[in-house]
């Protein structure tokens, strides 16, 4: 099963490699990993999307908690949560394709953020599945470049991960 694990970690050099090292050393999957400082600059918030049986996920959270720099760990998938990912995608958009491309971006609520003679760069946010769907919907030969951030997650309602 796919799980979204959120981690609050001291914003210290090496913390990221400790966490990614833990995943590789113990053979856990990482589908994506995002990290950036929080409103408190001394702390970073990390979202790891992983997969595994319940036992494996339990071990992952326990092992993460054991790391000295990890402040808190939550498996967001245990309850309602929101997941978002940002994608920037550069597509071929010559005079022929322009209109179609723009329409497609609109349908997916994307925004064209850069334009050249023959390209568009489209910004799209949403659940990973939506980004996948957008890519699927395009003429594959029109895709020049994609870059995705990986998922960030947050609990719904009063579920708060903070010290």
């Amino acid at each position: 099963m796919r799980h979204v694990v959120s981690i609050l970690v001291e914003n210290e050099a090496g913390a990221l490699s400790r966490i990614s090292g833990l995943f590789s050393a113990r053979g856990y999957n990482i589908e994506s990993l995002t990290v950036a400082p929080t409103e408190d600059a001394s702390m970073s918030r990390m979202t790891v999307v992983t997969s595994g049986s319940d036992e494996v996920i339990e071990q992952i959270t326990k092992q993460l908690n054991k790391l000295v720099e990890v402040v808190k760990v939550v498996d967001l998938s245990e309850a309602e949560h929101i997941e978002r990912e940002l994608m920037l995608i550069k597509v071929r958009a010559g005079t022929k394709e322009r209109e179609d491309m723009k329409r497609m971006a609109d349908i997916f609520r994307g925004r064209v953020v850069d334009v050249s003679d023959n390209t568009y760069t489209i910004e799209l946010t949403g659940h990973g599945a939506k980004l996948d769907a957008f890519i699927q919907a395009l003429d594959q030969s029109a895709i020049l470049e994609t870059v995705r951030t990986g998922a960030s997650g947050i609990g719904r309602g009063n579920r708060i991960l903070k010290v």
């Binding site: 036992e55 339990e58 071990q59 326990k62 092992q63 908690n65 054991k66």
Partner: peptide, 8 residues
């Protein structure tokens, strides 16, 4: 003392 040793 180590929760990760339990049910591993």
């Amino acid at each position: 003392i180590d929760p990760s040793s339990i049910s591993k």
